[in-house]
Write a protein that binds this DNA or RNA. Structure first.
Lengths: 169, 169
DNA sequence: CGGAATTATTTGCGCACGCAACTATGTTGA
DNA sequence: TCAACATAGTTGCGTGCGCAAATAATTCCG
């Protein structure tokens, strides 16, 4: 769709704003449900999910930060709470002593298994249940399309992209 | 991961995670582009958009907070910057002296017009350009489906159980 | 080998935000 | 009428997070 106006046309605006609305409502509701039922934020839940799926329940900090779409410093702070609660352990990486491994503990697995039904039921109730299998496949393809470029732009930008330097303002 | 019943199946998980990924990458990129080019956050941009579309460029604080999916206190703080920058003015509502009206200024309109091409081009480049008109109509319908229930759940929750409610009314 | 560059993570700092409490105003009903 | 309640918005406080600098370990070459 090659559109050149300065503003979004009606069709574009409708799609875009519904997308924004769905995102805002869905994320806040899933987070609120987890906090209310299990005193764990969606952000913390996602840490447990990613660790539980990793070999040995262990990931390097940077890899986990990337998986959670959070900065490295943000992940450090997020894990402080979870380490204190006993859900995650941190150990220095034996093969690279600069690095830290985050590992989900048995208590963390328990917490994940306890919270998962709340989260999964929420994802299904608020989102997935609105689509039959064929719809869901189409939606998945649609949602996947922009991702590749977004990932490549992110990489290009972090290296150097003059178009994004804050000199223009 | 084990325990099939509690967890999302492969099709569900694929759809859900791509949705999460798209949201995370898209929002951070659109915000970064606006900040880099015009020193204005996506959140502030959206304030200008909503005010510019309102009658007289004016909205009550609560209505603006709802439109921006932010708490009332969050909106108060967000507007502080924008008032100081001269993009928005606040006046007490003549018909209800508890209330405040936020109004976009000529300078705010200028800022919006200056920033709009960056934002609109980003929305098109990273998102809308991936769909032809027919696809976009389908996507819009898909994305719209969960919204009604999410809005009603938010309302029901805020009425019945204040502890669970992150004021998204 | 050894110093510069690179990489992994943490820390200092500041911002944005939500909740709860508070102020001020408006509404209601006995 | 006026006390009780409801509503609009702001403020105090705590949390989560990003950026940039600091720290620590590794790699790269001369």
């Amino acid at each position: 769709m090659l559109n050149e106006g300065i503003w979004l046309n009606q069709r574009e605006q409708n799609a875009w704003r519904k997308f924004l609305t769905l995102n805002a409502l869905l994320m806040s509701r899933l987070d609120a449900d987890l906090v209310a039922a299990h005193s764990i934020s969606l952000a913390e839940y996602e840490v447990l999910v990613h660790l539980s799926e990793a070999l040995g329940g262990t990931m390097r900090m940077s890899a986990l930060a990337n998986a959670c779409f959070v900065s490295r410093s943000g992940l450090t702070r997020r894990l402080e709470h979870m380490v204190a609660a006993g859900f995650v352990e941190k150990t220095t990486c034996p093969t690279d002593r600069r690095g830290m491994n985050a590992t989900i503990t048995p208590l963390g697995f328990d917490k994940l298994n306890e919270a998962a039904p709340t989260h999964v039921n929420g994802v299904r109730r608020y989102f997935l249940s609105k689509y039959d299998e064929a719809d869901l496949d189409i939606l998945t393809i649609f949602v996947d399309r922009p991702i590749e470029e977004l990932e490549s732009v992110a990489v290009a930008t972090s290296e150097c992209d003059s178009a994004r330097c804050p000199s223009l303002s």
